[in-house]
């Protein structure tokens, strides 16, 4: 951002919005927006408490399991779809439907199928993340240089060799891009799961604070969640940039 020709550091606009938030909060216009300073005070107050740590663990566990399955299923499926015309025609319509479908509407079905526990929450998280991971891995494989594949085959590569030594690496920049977006969607998935399926983790905290009008607590947990999601996404973006040097030269 530039103000009067002076280049400001990245995200300095956040300071401006934070300031606005503080002013609105101090004016006491609505209970919904307590001053930012108070939110941060609450944040440091609750961050080490057992209920918070328990919620963090419950949410973190469901989140990482969900992302894990989305990645280990999504990447191979996407690569196979990119390689095989048959699989692609079979699966692509479904992937395209689910990538844009309002998945929240499916959550009650999952509850019927898998119960009101952790399983359903993990599956919800996976469902939010997996489709974009599949699509990106597929796109990465489809732009692969054919002669790399011919080269590997001419030196006697087995199908597994071709998969792990050529297709995966050639598609890696796109795969990482898909994982980054998938992870952001998984945050959404895990919170929706914990609000709708069983009231645990951060979902339970949101529920508790909102119903007791503890807006300072509510915003504090939300800010922590945003910060966590943002950090993971930035880390994946960093990995993406590390492999980007060859993305243009495949």
């Amino acid at each position: 951002m530039q103000v009067f020709g002076v280049k400001l550091p990245a995200m300095s606009s956040l300071l401006l919005w934070g300031l606005l938030w503080e002013i609105v909060g101090q004016m006491g216009l609505t209970f919904f927006v307590p001053p930012l300073s108070q939110v941060f005070a609450t944040l440091f107050e609750i961050i080490g408490t057992p209920p918070f740590l328990k919620a963090l663990w419950e949410t973190g566990y469901a989140f990482f399991m969900g992302v894990f399955f989305a990645i280990v299923i999504g990447i191979p499926v996407g690569i196979l779809m990119g390689k095989s015309r048959f699989l692609d025609e079979l699966l692509l319509p479904w992937v395209n439907i689910f990538v844009s479908a309002p998945l929240t509407a499916l959550v009650p079905v999952l509850m019927v199928l898998f119960g009101f526990g952790l399983t359903s929450i993990i599956i919800t998280t996976t469902l939010f993340a997996i489709w974009i991971i599949i699509l990106n891995a597929r796109a990465g494989v489809r732009q692969i240089n054919r002669s790399l594949v011919d080269m590997a085959r001419s030196f006697g590569a087995s199908p597994l060799d071709a998969f792990t030594k050529i297709y995966f690496w050639a598609a890696l920049p796109e795969i990482l891009g898909g994982v980054r977006i998938g992870v952001i969607r998984a945050v959404k998935g895990v919170i929706i799961g914990q609000l709708l399926i069983s009231i645990v983790g951060f979902g339970a905290l949101f529920e508790l604070y909102a119903s007791n009008f503890l807006m300072g607590h509510f915003w504090a947990v939300l800010i922590i969640l945003f910060a966590l999601a943002f950090s993971i996404s930035e880390f994946l973006g960093y990995l993406e940039r590390k492999v980007a040097y060859y993305a243009a030269k495949r």
């Binding site: 002669s147 085959r153 001419s154 050529i166």
Partner: peptide, 18 residues
């Protein structure tokens, strides 16, 4: 099919960029 008795040199080099 492909075999150890033949090796190919490609017009576009076909090197692993990574």
């Amino acid at each position: 099919g492909p075999g150890d008795d033949r090796a190919f040199v490609f017009q576009d080099f076909a090197l692993l960029p990574w």
